[in-house]
Amino acid sequence: MIRAGAPVLLDVRELEASIGDKPILKGVSLEVRAGEVHAIMGPNGSGKSTLAKLLSGHPAYSVTRGSVAYRGSDLLGLSPEARAQAGLFLGFQYPVEIPGVSNAQFLRLAYNSVQAARGAEELDPLEFDDLVREKLALVDMDPSFLERNVNEGFSGGEKKRNEILQMALLEPVLALLDETDSGLDIDALRVVAGGVNSLAGADNAIVLVTHYQRLLNYIEPDYVHVMEGGQIIKTGDKALALELEARGYDWVRAEFDAARAAA
């Protein structure tokens, strides 16, 4: 929901970043205000996943130019955990399997880390169990997933539900969901999208990184950005997503190149 005067949560300016010597982001600017849902679309290798991972503090990327402010303060100097504690959440494209750590243990550690950083109450295992069972319903997950090791042996859909479950527990201010729809069948997609929608509110914002328009049938974006070659080359509303689905990405590139040539 776009509201005039809603506070700016994320302000990315002219961001350039590389992995090793290879530039990936070549001047990205993006402003996200409270209450908004943004979709970043684009072909493979366009840099959209890099942007999501970089914003959450992935150590593989180095910023070479530009700035990122989160709720008015510099984000790039913060460790990944400090970003999470400040309310940033990355839903992983490929959630990591962690043998030997139960999902319940992991979820409670994550929850308590974030609670402690916010000066809020930490929960013991019994109290946490009540909370997590309530949230499980949101993503239609069986409680038996709590006893299993983190993501180990989970199907693609189960891993993504587990990501949304973490989002539900951590109640992020800004959620970056990286290809949350990939590998999901239509039922799982509906469940995951339903979970995301129920977590969207006036005070938080969601950035969806996605390859396909399909997800946007379930989560309605306020803005659709097209990313290519490490830049956002076009921004529109949800109609743009449908147009991309119908016409592909080439015309956007052509339009962008023509505009640049004319400038």
């Binding site: 955990e81 999470a84 990355l90 992983f92 992991f106 994550a110 880390s113 974030v114």
Partner: peptide
């Protein structure tokens, strides 16, 4: 795995 845990708030 380290990054995954840190992205969830663990030091």
């Amino acid at each position: 795995a380290l990054f995954y845990l840190r992205s969830r708030g663990l030091g």
